[in-house]
């Protein structure tokens, strides 16, 4: 394997992602765990950039770092008792471990089955953002899922307003 600047960047981003994820599950301070989560999500955004999917990368940072991480952090800040938790696992850990293991095996199998030396690396089309935009309004492509997701978000928004008004 030749070392190019891209490979170096990949290893840095992969280290961010894996290190961040480890930090999330091993840290006992919830606020620090949330920060590690930000680092992991940031690493994933970097991986998207290396895969020439900058749209996904920007959305990843905007949604996960800009919105969800801020939300999680504020939730931790305003919940007083949550900071005193000292155990890093609770009673449901065997269940969680089982679910995680099944997920890991499935994903690993799919990835190895599909990509382990079988598929040649195809060039990314240059206008991928235009194609994405067109696919979202094309009836044969993703118009219906896109509209369903929009309606779902709208319903959630109206629900939030109704709850907040009481």
């Amino acid at each position: 394997m030749t070392i190019t600047p891209i490979t170096i960047a990949f290893f840095i981003m992969a280290a961010f992602t894996l290190g961040g994820s480890l930090g999330v599950v091993t840290n006992r301070n919830l606020f620090h765990a949330a920060l590690y989560l930000v680092l992991a999500l940031f690493g994933v955004a970097g991986l998207f950039v290396l895969l020439e999917a900058p749209f996904l990368a920007a959305v990843q940072v905007l949604v996960y770092v800009g919105a969800i991480a801020v939300l999680i952090t504020i939730t931790i800040m305003v919940t007083r008792r949550i900071m005193g938790v000292t155990e890093s696992v609770n009673r449901q850990w065997p269940l969680a471990a089982g679910v995680s293991a099944i997920m890991a095996i499935t994903l690993g199998f799919v990835v190895l089955d599909r990509f382990a030396g079988k598929l040649p690396v195809a060039a990314v089309p240059g206008d991928n953002i235009v194609r994405l935009g067109e696919a979202l309004v094309n009836y044969d492509a993703y118009l219906v899922p896109f509209e369903v997701a929009s309606v779902l978000l709208l319903a959630a928004m109206i629900g939030a307003i109704v709850v907040a008004r009481e």
Binding site: V38, P54, A57, A58, V61, L62, V65, G66, V70, T73
Partner: peptide, 11 residues
Amino acid sequence: YLAAVGSLGIM
């Protein structure tokens, strides 16, 4: 990208 980077400041 502008919007994404700007949201880092909040963090």
